[in-house]
Design a protein around this nucleic acid. Structure first.
Lengths: 164, 164
DNA sequence: TTAAAGTTGACTATTTTGCTGGGTTAAGTA
DNA sequence: TACTTAACCCAGCAAAATAGTCAACTTTAA
């Protein structure tokens, strides 16, 4: 279990999704605007999230992403695991330096600790995070911000189409 | 609080140190041999650990490193914090993208989670890890292995000196 | 004094991050 | 049917982090 900015992005995006996907699918473009994450990077992350069956992609107009399950059944550990490479057998597995399994056992020590953190994060769901008060206030604020951005975007598009 | 291989190396090395430093200071060379971590990388890590007052360096022959405090007073969170860069103000702090503090509040959500993990790891000490049975068995096995390596090392040195 | 050990800094290679930009494909809508 | 909107899928790239190398220097026990 690693904890990096990549995982943070994924959790943030999933939380945004959980907050907005009740009514209709949410486009990555919207999430990108609200959370100021690049669209292409979001695509990469959601590609993994989709393959891990955390979200469902719906194509075409009116499409977007929805959670594959209810928010109370999606935990943080699974989100992070979905976007992170498994650290698979870093030096072990093969013969490499590790003579037989000796050095690998050292890793197991860390893994034990790592497992405990994983268990801890498994106990936290998106639903629990949504309940937090400040998450709601921030999300609402971001909605308002994003509307302005989309407004400007539409305006720009309009001007562009007039110049053609 | 990030969790990467860097932090894992540091925790592993500190645990090795805690296990061996009762009698006399432990050299990085020994830790490197036992834990198969490159000596130079260990030097970098211990440079930070020393500046964070986690360990004491003792120079000269018979020198090495010892814990700066007893094993029951050194927790995992502090070890990781010592070797990791603080993620200081990634995008926030300055004006950058974050309009005023809006986006920064999103980070606070994650930081809350991050703080909880930190608190959790603060509750785990080196002494607690040492008590675990399999840690002791592995450590002993590594001692035996390392002796063989040192044996071979001495043998090679001897041959080298004979060729001069 | 001298050699063993720690200490420091600069430098390199590799991997991971985060991102850009180019497409293709599926599904609604005019 | 044509067009649009979105997901999906690549290939590559720059910056950062990771992991390690090398060389010089300092301290101190023997």
């Amino acid at each position: 279990m690693r904890l990096t900015t990549k995982g943070r992005y994924a959790v943030t995006a999933m939380l945004d999704l959980a907050f907005h996907s009740d009514v209709k699918p949410v486009t990555l473009t919207d999430i990108a605007a609200r959370q100021t994450i690049s669209l292409s990077y979001l695509e990469q992350l959601f590609s993994r999230l989709r393959r891990a069956n955390m979200v469902k992609g719906i194509r075409g107009p009116g499409g977007g992403y929805t959670l594959a399950d209810t928010a109370d059944k999606i935990n943080i550990a699974d989100i992070i695991a979905a976007v992170d490479e498994p650290i698979d057998a870093t030096k072990c597995g093969g013969e490499a330096n590790c003579q037989k399994d000796q050095s690998c056992l050292t890793h197991e020590l860390w893994m034990g600790l790592s497992d405990q953190i994983r268990d801890y994060l498994k106990g936290i769901t998106l639903a629990q995070l949504l309940e937090k008060h400040h998450v709601q206030t921030v999300a609402k604020r971001q909605d308002q911000e994003a509307e302005q951005v989309i407004e400007i975007h539409r305006h720009t598009e309009l001007l562009a189409s007039m110049n053609e």
